[in-house]
Each structure stands twice: as C-alpha cells, then as structure tokens.
C-alpha cells in the first residue's frame, strides 16, 4: 500500500503525516507538490493540516483549485482512501468531496488541546480497529473547526453512518452536534479536525491516532493484498 501526502504552500503537518506512515505502518510514502496532477501510483492520499494559501478567502478555498486536487477527486472516485486532517478536511469540504462547510470556532479563539472523541462508526476503512462507541483522545489545533451543515444533510449523514467521530463531553468549537469527522457516502473519504498523526506514541500525550492509520492499512491490504 503506497501513500501520498500532497503539499500545498502553507501546509505544515505534511512531514508528520509521512512519518506516521513510515513509522507506524512501515509502508512507502511520498510528499507530492500541489502542482503535480498525477496520483496514479498511490492507494491512499493524506491531505495534511496547515494553512494552505494562508487561509486566504476561506480556509481550503484556494487549495481546491490546484492540480493535485483534480487527482485527489479522481482517486476518491476510484475508491482509493482519502484522509483529510484539519486543513485537509477544510479543503475536502471546499472541494465538495465532503458535504457541509467550516466556520470560525464559536468562541473565536484558536484552540490547541487534547480532546476526547467518541467513535461513532467503526465499520469504516479508517476506524475498523476502534470499538464502536469507544472514547479516544486526539489533539486538536484550529481556529476554524466549527463544522456546519443544514438539517437535511445532517439527517442523511446520521442515517448513512457518515459521522465517524464526535467530541465526547466538551465541544471545543461549536460544530453541529459535536461532529469532529465525517465521511462521504461511500466511506472512502474521511475528513476530521483532530490530528491522528500527532498522536502515535504515548510520549505525545496519546497514541490513539496510530490505530486510524493501522485501520486503513488493514482495510486496504485485506482487500488488495500487501503489494
């Protein structure tokens, strides 16, 4: 299983994502510059956190028009795994690969802390190694994580099991029903505000993020072999 991490001007979690793949999964991973429109060699795409294009206009709004995003849309369409973390989630929303939009945190502050999340659906390629309803701890670091969608969209997300994670207890940003991460209808595209790549060893404060990457590997190589 081969991983790509697209790098936009302003990405800053790209190396952390690559490191998580190398150290936790021991699989090949390449950083791919945003002007590269070819992701054919890869099975999974990790859109990293950061501040692509300085967050100008709206978070994720300008990154969406870079050549690599056409390739990400194609990869998603072909059933490859696409994971958007923090700014990567914002980019996926702006690109229309996930429904809804991101607003400024309801308290208007940038929030950097470890949050408790509840795994709402463990039948996804990204969550298979968690228990359903399990509470895990992952760090967040964002000023715009206040996820919004209208009531009709929310109902659809709930009915189809597209809500992967919710904040358990305190909601750190005001997101609709405490949503922390959602998938597309097919379940092969996940966006989440917390940073699993910053939670892969105990000394980081929590290693609960490691299982998200391991879940992806188990799902993919279970279906396609270890090539």
């Amino acid at each position: 299983m081969r991983f790509a991490v697209p790098v936009f001007p302003g990405s800053n979690c790209d190396e952390d994502c690559a490191k998580a793949v190398r150290e936790i999964l021991d699989r090949p991973v390449d950083l791919v510059w945003y002007k590269n429109g070819n992701l054919d060699p890869y099975d999974a795409i990790l859109l990293p956190g950061g501040f692509s294009y300085g967050d100008y206009l709206r978070t994720g709004a300008l990154a969406r028009f870079s050549p690599v995003m056409d390739a990400v849309a194609e990869a998603a369409d072909r059933g490859k795994l696409v994971l958007g973390i923090c700014n990567g989630f914002q980019v996926l929303l702006e690109a229309g690969l996930l429904p809804g939009a991101m607003r400024v945190n309801d308290h208007l502050k940038f929030r950097c802390s470890i949050q408790t999340l509840r795994v709402e659906n463990n039948r996804l390629p990204f969550t298979g190694l968690y228990e359903e309803g399990e509470e895990i701890r992952l760090p967040i670091a964002h000023g715009e994580g206040n996820y919004y969608c209208d009531d009709g969209t929310l109902k659809g997300l709930e009915e189809r099991g597209q809500i992967a994670f919710r904040y358990a207890g305190e909601n750190p940003n005001g997101s609709v029903t405490g949503i922390a991460g959602i998938t597309n209808r097919e379940g092969n595209v996940l966006g989440l505000m917390p940073h699993p790549e910053r939670a892969i060893y105990g000394w980081m404060g929590t290693d609960d993020g490691a299982r998200l990457f391991r879940s992806m590997l188990r799902y993919w190589e279970g279906m396609h072999g270890a090539a």
């Binding site: 709004a61 028009f65 702006e94 429904p99 939009a101 919004y148 209208d150």
Partner: peptide, 8 residues
C-alpha cells in the same frame, strides 16, 4: 465558483 461558499 469561488468567491462565496453557497453552503453558508
């Protein structure tokens, strides 16, 4: 296409 996000 770009300047406004029709969702919000």
């Amino acid at each position: 296409e770009l300047l406004a996000n029709p969702v919000i």
